[in-house]
């Protein structure tokens, strides 16, 4: 399994990289998706621009109510960051479920989002967290909401020559309960379905519910029907069951050799129920 021949560059400066991307280069982040598809020759870029040496794309910092993660921050850095664990525990929990130790050592949050694999773990949490992406190309910068970012299977709002430079994540309400529950495909580690839940309670009632789902449909999505059903309730087991049953509403389920559409839909409901139960129990 040898990739097609390609030119390689590894700029250390973002501007230089954006210039090379503008002339048709393919960005390489952690390589956990791109390298396998190059080896399978599903992709054969003529020029690979390795972003791995751009130190300015690897950071986690807090600014005025938001966390900022550079696009080249690895899954391991996210899962082990005391700042992320305390200020946005859902993201750290999601990162700890991705692939395996070696994959988390190399894979990056920007690379995973840009690849937009419908079975990737991160997008469920990124949807539930209502993050924003900072994008850059040689012609300028812009900010895009996660809902506008994920367009379809392996398709995002990124334009040719444009990359994610930063993920902007709202700091979690300390009283919120969060959980990511995933049915794992044991060989690949991908999610057959994965559900990220965030619950805020006040006066014994669920005041805010956010549910992000990966693996079920052509792209990660927010299960807004399920959210609405839970908001305003006490979050009892019956309330959760009702909301979880609506998790697949309006979504055409994927089917593959690991799970038929019917089975996947059923599992999405089961895992939504689990994620919501844990999140509700953790909310104070």
């Amino acid at each position: 399994m040898i990739a097609h021949i390609f030119e390689y560059s590894a700029p250390t400066d973002l501007k230089e990289a954006l210039g090379q991307l503008a002339s048709g280069g393919k960005p390489l982040a952690g390589g956990m998706s791109l390298i396998p598809i190059m080896k399978l020759r599903l992709a054969a870029p003529e020029h690979v621009v390795d972003l791995g040496r751009i130190v300015a794309l690897n950071y986690i910092r807090e600014e005025a109510g938001t966390l900022h993660a550079g696009a080249m921050t690895t899954h391991y850095q996210i899962e082990s960051s005391p700042l992320v664990r305390s200020r946005c525990p859902l993201l750290a929990e999601a990162a700890s479920h991705i692939g395996d130790v070696q994959v988390r050592n190399m894979g990056t949050i920007g690379g995973s989002a840009a690849h937009a694999d419908p079975a990737a773990d991160y997008p469920a949490s990124l949807m539930a967290l209502e993050v924003q992406f900072r994008l850059a190309s040689s012609s300028g910068e812009r900010t895009v909401s996660v809902e506008d970012f994920f367009v379809d299977t392996f398709a995002t709002a990124l334009q040719p020559g444009e990359i994610i430079t930063e993920v902007i994540i709202p700091v979690e309400d300390p009283s919120a309960g969060v959980s990511y529950q995933k049915m794992v495909q044991p060989a690949s580690g991908y999610a057959i379905v994965g559900v990220a839940a965030r619950i805020t309670k006040s006066g014994g009632k669920v005041t805010k519910a956010r549910v992000g789902v990966t693996g079920l449909g052509p792209k990660a999505f927010r299960a807004k029907a399920a959210e609405k059903l839970l908001e305003g309730t006490e979050g009892t087991a019956a309330d959760i069951a009702k909301a979880a049953a609506a998790v697949s509403e309006g979504v055409e389920s994927n089917t593959d050799l690991h799970a038929s559409a019917n089975y996947r839909t059923q599992m999405a409901r089961v895992y939504a129920g689990r994620a919501l139960s844990v999140a509700v129990s953790r909310a104070t």
Partner: peptide, 21 residues
Amino acid sequence: TSICGACTVAVDGIAVKSCTM
């Protein structure tokens, strides 16, 4: 195919699957 881990080595102290780098 980055599944089995038999090719694991450390690069600057970080364990990686060397078939996927």
